[in-house]
């Protein structure tokens, strides 16, 4: 939802866009401007090693990487590190690479305010209030793994450093529920090709360009199931060809040791 909110556009929709970004960032636990600038950078340098600041796992992915990603622990730890760095005015090389200099004071202010809010929420049970805890914990425990399964399959097993979005990005078919939950972002190739197209128009766009882009992979469950199988086999040193999902040529091996291509940047 937040991803779609990041790219929602057109005059009157902008304030909705901003509201969605801020509210979801509070729940997602990431400083909103950090999220904005790393995400625009991800669109400019999609899956380019050393340039894309939103590569959430090492590639090729093994089972350990899958687990760290889907549990949400790796991401939560990263976001907490970002909060603390920003609050202490310690701006990393990646932050400096993607953020206009003038934004840093605002990011520091936001990080401090949000950390204070989280501290208040953590203390709220002492005042007999539990709902603020559930406000954060329920999305984190129930929502995050589902969201991460969605975001995992956007680029996993595809080509790093590819000049074409078609080689680095995956669209997949969507059941009505997954299309609804994911706000049509299953049309991910199309979203990266034309990021300014609002989420509600993505199915129409996908229809219009379907002859010029790769066939979407199977649905959410099947694609994730195949990815899980590949990561398990890779970790066990077994062949890594998936049954039907798209894979970059170097992701398909007959087994054996894996040569790392990219290190996670978030």
């Amino acid at each position: 939802m937040a991803r779609a909110g990041n790219t929602l556009r057109l005059g009157a929709a902008r304030w909705i866009n901003e509201t969605v970004l801020w509210v979801t960032s509070l729940i997602y636990m990431e400083e909103p401007l950090h999220r904005r600038f790393t995400h625009t950078n991800h669109h400019t340098h999609t899956w380019h090693v050393g340039k894309d600041s939103q590569m959430p796992f090492d590639t090729p992915m093994g089972f350990g990487g899958w687990l760290a990603e889907i549990s949400g622990f790796a991401l939560l730890r990263f976001h907490m590190q970002v909060f603390v760095s920003l609050a202490l005015r310690r701006y990393s090389q990646t932050m400096r690479m993607v953020t206009p200099e003038a934004e840093f004071p605002k990011m520091t202010r936001n990080a401090r305010i949000m950390l204070a809010l989280y501290a208040l929420i953590a203390l709220s049970p002492f005042a007999g209030l539990w709902w603020p805890i559930w406000f954060l914990a329920i999305p984190r425990v129930l929502g995050a793994p589902v969201m991460l399964l969605f975001t995992l399959i956007q680029h996993v097993e595809l080509q790093e450093n590819a000049p074409s979005i078609l080689d680095s990005t995956r669209s997949f078919r969507g059941h009505w529920l997954s299309r609804f939950l994911y706000m049509n972002m299953n049309n991910h190739v199309e979203h990266h090709l034309y990021p300014n197209v609002p989420f509600h128009a993505l199915p129409k766009l996908a229809e219009a360009v379907k002859d010029q882009v790769p066939e979407p992979d199977p649905g959410f469950v099947r694609t994730n199931w195949e990815v899980l199988g590949v990561t398990l086999r890779r970790s066990l040193g077994l062949p890594t060809k998936a049954a039907s999902i798209r894979q970059a040529p170097h992701m398909i091996t007959k087994g054996g040791p894996v040569q790392q291509v990219a290190k996670r940047t978030m």
Partner: peptide
Amino acid sequence: CPLHGGRFDICTGKALSAPAST
């Protein structure tokens, strides 16, 4: 802007909306 949708006032050059800020 065609890349991320940042907007500028053409008369004054002022950055009007994110991610454009300069």
